[in-house]
Design a protein around this nucleic acid. Structure first.
Lengths: 194, 194
DNA sequence: CCTAAATGATACCAAACGGTATTGTATGCT
DNA sequence: AGCATACAATACCGTTTGGTATCATTTAGG
């Protein structure tokens, strides 16, 4: 893929607008005018609005999971601290101090809410992105020699998703602290291998 | 309010459709035809579609929080069991064995996702409903003499919201069990009064 | 320099959107 | 019986929707 500059503009602009106002609430003309793009440019790169949404989710997956991957890979971390770092990152996200742009909830959860049918490609893409996050946390838990790393990863993710939902609905960052505190209690007596 | 039969039909039909497909995805004509209602009937009871959405959220708040209130008030429960009952109810909800109809995520969270602006009346109504739930759990925690009942309530709610988000996005009920397991660990060494 | 592809700018389309107006018919209270 | 209200049915309004067609202009590569 040589120079996907326009295609990138489309995804970038759409991502910003979808994030700020929602998928159905934003028409393609808004995206085109905001991004100074022509209509035919959109339809040469994507067959439909839904396909553009899929492209946005794909880009978002790389951005979000990529960021958390960096957080989890910090060489200064070890043990519980590695998993707890997730919640410091969350707080930064909620307070708009992250590379993910203005916080407006999780785009994947919102996508699955606006496209509720389980067989909808948009819904599936969102589910895949979320599963990738869980797998990432499980790998980190395994690395730190926690027992039952997958169960731990799912529970950590529960706290993370709860914090995102509450932060979105009440426009506050405190849920990140509450979640970190709960995760600390969870990890306090979680068994390790060897 | 004497006989709000048509008004009730409007809210009931709209609630079902919004729950199944989302707020922006459902037009008023869908609601009217599905509920065998005339257009002017809608606009005699509500000044706008947004007002209807507010009516739906109000009704939903009574249904959802009312149900959880019953769950928490069960006289057979005591101590940790009273709070853990939330997660059994969650699992029933996810598996469509609840009085709340087919599970499709939390309508309040989805509303706040489709109406992201914090000053939007719809967003505010959703936030109020969620806060009412937290207060309810805090009251139950206080009743059972847990220390820091409000912090405990927020953390229980984190797990609950996380479970809802994951159950919605992956179409599974297992997050309810994971959340209950995590809540058990949380409650295991949570201090009590006296 | 020349050609071919990518783009911008418009005009256009049928359908659906939220909302209003009109008219005729039930319905229920006094 | 009389009368106001609630309702269904329908036509209509202007706007916006996602998507297509046309054509001139820019851009990049050989």
């Amino acid at each position: 893929m040589p120079r996907p500059s326009r295609r990138n503009d489309l995804i970038e602009t759409a991502q910003t607008l979808f994030n700020a106002e929602g998928f159905h609430a934003v028409g393609i003309e808004r995206i085109l005018s905001e991004g100074n793009l022509a209509k035919m440019t959109l339809y040469r790169h994507f067959p439909s609005k839904d396909a553009l949404i899929l492209g946005v989710l794909e880009a978002r997956e790389k951005a979000v999971n990529g960021w958390f991957r960096e957080v989890l890979a910090d060489p200064n971390l070890q043990g519980k601290g590695r998993l707890l770092a997730i919640f410091d990152a969350l707080e930064a996200w909620f307070e708009d101090r992250s590379p993910l742009g203005k916080f407006s909830g999780c785009l994947f959860v919102r996508a699955s809410g606006e496209f509720p049918h389980p067989t909808d490609p948009v819904h599936i893409a969102a589910a895949d992105a979320k599963q990738a996050f869980i797998d990432m946390v499980a790998a980190a838990a395994e690395l730190e020699r926690f027992k039952k790393p997958r169960l731990l990863a799912r529970q950590i993710t529960l706290l993370k998703e709860g914090a995102i939902a509450l932060a979105q609905i009440q426009g506050a960052s405190k849920p990140a602290q509450d979640a970190k505190n709960a995760a600390e209690r969870l990890l306090a007596d979680w068994p390790r291998k060897k």
